[in-house]
């Protein structure tokens, strides 16, 4: 029973070792990983290094420019709230939304795509029709409607955004599953009496991990962008909580009098998004999965 898995295991490990080696050689990928690690560390630890709280108001420092001579290193907003703490907590929320929603879309997409691709025939046809119809819908509007219906619960926001992301993932996984279904080790597993469910999750799913990892890396920035977009429109994270999107929105309205309110969160968001994109591209080259 374990023979087919053992047969593919060294091969798979080889792919990952090669990929890691190629990834380490890419300077862009190293820079991206460094930037993401630093931002994550800063988002987790930073707020504890500063005496201010995200919602405390400092009446003596209203709309203070950034500087190290006072306690508000990245300045304050017109309400006197510290932007260092607010930006980093916003980064934390944006990252959490990005990762959680990506996990939701990964789970749904992998299961749906693997079942469609492995089942084939009329089941596959029907499941792909559903995806076709869903991808024809303006899903952003459904998310907007959902956020209105369910109120502003952050967790529902994660789920709603994740529910958008799975369509492409399912398509990718299906394509891979169809190819893997024809391989000898799957046939061998079936001949050894493995059930379809076992074949699906032991043999098919592990072999689609490459493209899935690449696409997941590219999904995280998409979702962070989407969350900040919703927050910008006033549908996402609510005051006094902050996400990068809400900070940029309030910064955009103060852009002439307090440009740092726009520049600092925009820079953090841009660095985060660019790093994830660069990492995804580098992973795609390293794992050699072709265009997604």
């Amino acid at each position: 029973m374990n023979a087919p898995a053992a047969e593919s295991a060294p091969h798979a490990a080889g792919i990952w070792r090669d990929a890691l080696r190629r990834l380490r050689r890419s300077r862009a990928a190293l820079a991206a990983v460094t930037a993401i690690t630093l931002l994550v560390a800063l988002a987790l630890l930073g707020p504890h290094l500063n005496p201010n709280r995200y919602d405390s108001i400092d009446w003596s420092c209203i709309a203070m420019p950034p500087g190290l001579e006072h306690a508000h290193w990245w300045g304050t907003d017109p309400l006197g709230r510290d932007l260092f703490v607010r930006t980093l907590l916003g980064t934390r929320i944006s990252l959490a939304v990005g990762l959680l929603a990506t996990l939701v879309s990964l789970f749904v997409g992998i299961v749906y795509g693997a079942v469609a691709g492995y089942a084939g025939g009329s089941v596959d046809h029907l499941m792909m029709r559903v995806i076709e119809i869903l991808s024809g819908l303006p899903l952003i509007f459904f998310v907007i409607l959902l956020t209105v219906v369910f109120g502003r619960s952050e967790y529902l926001l994660f789920a709603a955004i994740g529910a958008i992301g799975w369509l492409t993932m399912a398509r990718i996984v299906r394509g891979q599953a169809m190819a893997i279904r024809e391989r000898e080790f799957v046939e061998a597993a079936a001949a050894a009496g493995a059930s379809p469910v076992r074949i699906l999750f032991r043999h098919v799913v592990p072999n689609v991990i490459g493209p899935v990892v690449v696409y997941a890396t590219l999904t995280v920035p998409q979702i962070i962008l989407f969350e900040s977009f919703l927050s910008f429109l006033g549908l996402g994270i609510q005051e006094p909580q902050a996400s990068l999107g809400t900070l940029i929105a309030s910064g955009a309205s103060e852009m002439e009098s307090a440009p740092w309110m726009l520049l600092i969160p925009s820079a953090v968001l841009a660095i985060l998004l660019i790093s994830f994109h660069v990492l995804g591209d580098a992973l795609r080259d390293a794992l050699d999965v072709g265009d997604l």
Partner: peptide
């Protein structure tokens, strides 16, 4: 092309438009 395209995809429109407005308008 590759580098600039990553930037263009990653910078959200609600950052780009105010920034362009700040630069070319104000």
């Amino acid at each position: 092309t590759i580098g600039l395209s990553v930037v263009a995809i990653a910078v959200p429109s609600f950052v780009l438009l105010p920034a362009l407005g700040l630069l070319f308008g104000i």
